[in-house]
Every structure is written in C-alpha cells, then in structure tokens.
Design a protein around this nucleic acid. Structure first.
Lengths: 216, 216
DNA sequence: TTGTGTGAATTAGTTCACAGCA
DNA sequence: TGCTGTGAACTAATTCACACAA
C-alpha cells in the first residue's frame, strides 16, 4: 500500500485523472451500471482507453476481458487510495462570490473531504452557516484551524492579501493549499500548493479559439 | 509570425505559462521595473529560470546578459502573440455565484478579451449589467452570440444541462469553451474545450496534504 | 563575472502492440 | 472474438551545461 502511494505521488497527472474517474464512476453507479470497459470510461473522461488502463493499473485494479471493471470495486480502490480512510477537513479563506460558489460546488460531494469552515474579514458573516460551512472572522483563523484539525485550505481572497493569508495558514499548520489568487505565493517545502488561474486559462482558450476560427 | 504561432500551438503548457508571465510582468511594470532577469521572473512564476528562457525563446524575445529582458518589450511580444491584435469577446452561460465571481475576477483584466454577455434561465437577470457584462435570457443565446460575434464561452451551469448548453454554443458558432461543469462534453474538432474541475483539484491537494502530514 | 540562448541529455507522460485470458 | 495487462516505443516537457556577449 505504501509503495503504491509513493508511486502515485510521483504521477500528479494520474492522480488528477483518477479524481475525475471517481466522479464519473459515481454517476455510472447512480445509473445502476455495475461494470464498465476501459473504452467507456475513456469516452466519459475524454482520454484514451490505454490511458485508463494504465491509470487503473497503478491502483492495482483488475478487470475481466468479458465484463470490464467492476464499478463498485474501482470506487473502493480509488477512495481508499485517495483518502486512505481518513476524513480530512478543509477551510475557505475569503467568503465572497467565489468562495460561496466553491462551497456550493463541493457541498456533499466527497464524504471524506469536507469544507467545514469559512473565514472572512467581514464581521457580519461570522456565525453564519453557508452550505454546511460555518463562517468565522479571519482573526480566529489559527485558533479554529488548530481546534478543528483542518489540513486543507482554499484561498479566495484579493491578490493584495494573498501572501499574508497564506503565511497565516502555513503557520496554523495547513498542509495543502488551493490558491485562486494571481499571486504565486511562497510556501515551505512542507506544504503543497496548487494554483488555479482563471484568467490564464481563459486566455489559453481564447488563443485556441482564434486558431480554430482561422482554420475555417 | 505564422510559423511562430504554429509552434506555440503545439505547446499548450507554454501558452499557459506565458499568460501567467504576462500577469506578473504587468505587476512589475506597475512598480516601475523596466527590466527583469529570467531568474526573477522564474521566482515570481514559480518555475525554473531555464524554463522561462525557453518559453521566451519561442516568442523570439531577446534579453541582454547585463540588464535581463525589457519588461515592456516582453509584454508587447506576448500581447501581440496571444491576441494577435484582435479584440475577442466572451460570454458566460450561467449567472450564479460562480458566473459572477468569474465576471468580477476578469473585469478589466485584459483589454483584448472581454466578457460582454451573460446568459441565464432566470428572467429577472435579463437586462441587468454586472461587472460590465449585460445579461440575457438563455433563449436569446444564439441571436446575441451571432450579433456580437462572440467566439469564447464560459460554462457555469448545473451539470444536468451542460451538454445541452454546450451544443447550443457550438451551433451558435463559439470556437472556444471553458467548462466548469463536471460533464466532459462532446464537441466537434472545430471547437476547443478546456475543463476546469474544482473538485478534482481540491482532491489532489488533499492527497498531497496528507502525504506532507505523514512526512512530518 | 553574470546571465542569455540553445543543443544535448534527461525525465515525464502517452500510445502502441500484442500475449493471454474469459 | 474482444478486452485486459503491460513491456516497448514513442512523444512531449523540462533541465543541464556551456559557448558567447555585455
């Protein structure tokens, strides 16, 4: 098991796809599908069938040539691998439109990973519960994170306070950060940070859109 | 020039980084920095210096060993390359929290790429202008997109109507789509689509966070 | 010196192609 | 026959390392 996790840790792309597979498999399960072939999952995820088989291989999943992979089996493998049977708690710093959108997007999606706290400098939010997520003033950040043993944080504050907020999160003991600001913040090696840049992504889309238009 | 674009089109990763460089360079320019070394830009973007030099090489940017790269020169190169001097218009389908957050995130950021229209099935939004973006009922989608010659669309609707909305966008002539739903939609080859999955990204962060905790 | 520009080397990621099984 | 599991081949992405210029 530990060896498998080490292997996986070296393949961030695979991990991301596996998270996507899980979502798709849950949808399939909801439709009472019990088995699925690699090419069917590949179609749903928009990747190649051999890619799916390779990814599942890493998880030591096995399928039968006649029926494909058992959906419930895959889901168990994936969940145990990703969450390692421990519940993890997450917090959001910055309860604006984006913060709320993410709360509602994520609400009820993954029982092993729950966004339980929100922080904002706006006092009128304190005490409110939005999508199952209790809001606090940002000055209680360290206290709440330590009390609740929160390990993951989502940062949706204005760019100008990004590094400051991230420093606070790090010293409060956060181990993983999903950063929506445009600042590429400094964090120690002991913390994992992933940057999401809407603007950059939209610009990439615009670039290819132009290319596609020219093609016609 | 055309040759350069063809080369770039084959390096999606480079394009994404270049968009990030642009943001960072604009910040630098605002601070009256006129020149920058590859390692400084690398620090800001959290990539390696040789990566920066390679990326800039693709754009045929040149720097001097003593002063580094000229910031305004880089910005010109990047902007002309990315937008090819044409203004592009974008629309958002789904004016909920997420849609609005994206509107405000992007408002005023890039003069060559503007989100000018929003579509929603909620009638009370029609006619409202949010962050410079005029809202319409979704049934006017095709008409407005054609009239305004919008080429890029952002999809922030519920998963259940995702494919349906994307089909409409494609037949209205959209060439690039940024998809925030969990559905990996089908689109023809003539359209570029990029999927953003918050949940998957957050799960990846949680995975590495757990890894980092174990490390301690 | 110090940093750029770039060929060469390395590493990561993906697809191919086929043996083996139901 | 049709699909899985996987070594081998290939392609893409990144880093190294060093000639050259200010």
């Amino acid at each position: 098991m530990l060896e498998m996790i080490t292997k996986l840790a070296e393949s961030p792309k695979t991990i991301e796809r596996i998270c996507v597979y899980r979502q798709l498999l849950q949808q399939q399960q909801a439709q009472n599908k019990t088995h699925i072939f690699s090419h069917d999952l590949a179609d749903l995820a928009k990747v190649s069938p051999s890619q799916v088989r390779r990814d599942l291989m890493l998880l030591k999943c096995v399928g039968s040539p006649s029926k494909g992979y058992e959906v419930s089996g895959l889901l168990e493998h994936i969940s145990s691998l990703l969450s390692q049977s421990q519940v993890q708690k997450a917090a959001i710093v910055g309860v604006g439109n984006l913060g709320r959108a993410i709360m509602s997007f994520f609400y009820g999606r993954d029982p092993n990973l729950k966004i339980i706290a929100g922080f904002d400098s706006e006092d009128h939010l304190s005490g409110r519960v939005i999508h199952g997520c209790r809001c606090h003033n940002v000055k209680d950040l360290e206290k709440v994170i330590k009390e609740e043993q929160i390990t993951v944080a989502i940062v949706t504050v204005p760019d100008s306070v990004s590094q400051e907020v991230i420093d606070k999160l790090v010293s409060a003991g956060i181990k993983g950060i999903l950063n929506f600001t445009h600042v590429r913040a400094n964090v120690p090696d002991s913390v994992f940070i992933s940057d999401v840049s809407f603007s950059a992504q939209l610009e990439v889309v615009a670039f290819y859109a132009k290319l596609k238009s020219a093609h016609t």
